[in-house]
């Protein structure tokens, strides 16, 4: 049961070793840098040191109590990431699949719109464009 923020890449399999031992269901989600325009070289992710770690822990604990999780893990990177690199992962473990799926979905909705990260798309000419928040992410969060 932990949340981490780091610049270094991570190995999903290594992160999940020993995770959720004894659970009946484990769900993992990982977000990957994608390029929809063909013009992007990567992402730069800024965050709020101190607040980020605390708030990710809060969301993890809220999910654990609401969905009766037996284990959870959140890992989110910041700094410069190339297209195709993993940005973050969420893993949840519960007795049954519904709680594991729903809690991963719940955590992703909170991370998308209520965790202090800001993405900037980097282009080949060295410029960057801040990514706008999506209305659909806000709508998605209201489900909970």
């Amino acid at each position: 049961m932990s949340a981490h923020v780091q610049t270094a890449p991570f190995d999903l399999a290594a992160e999940l070793r020993g995770f959720g031992k004894g659970a009946g269901a484990v769900v993992t989600f990982s977000g990957v840098v994608r390029d929809d325009t063909g013009q992007m070289t990567g992402l730069e992710i800024e965050h709020y040191p101190g607040m980020t770690e605390r708030i990710l822990n809060d969301y993890g604990q809220q999910a654990a109590s609401r969905f009766k999780l037996t284990d959870w893990r959140i890992l989110h990177r910041h700094g410069r990431l190339a297209v195709g690199e993993q940005i973050m992962m969420v893993a949840t473990a519960a007795r049954h699949r519904r709680a594991a799926f729903d809690s991963a979905d719940y955590l992703m909705d909170w991370l998308k719109s209520r965790a202090p990260f800001w993405k900037r798309e980097l282009s080949a000419d060295g410029g960057g464009t801040w990514v706008d928040a999506r209305d659909s992410d806000e709508t998605s969060l209201k489900r909970w």
Binding site: Y48, M51, K112, S113, R114, P116, F117, V131, A133
Partner: peptide
């Protein structure tokens, strides 16, 4: 106190 745009994590 911190000010920032709407967050774009995940």
């Amino acid at each position: 106190v911190a000010f920032f745009p709407p967050m774009t994590g995940g």
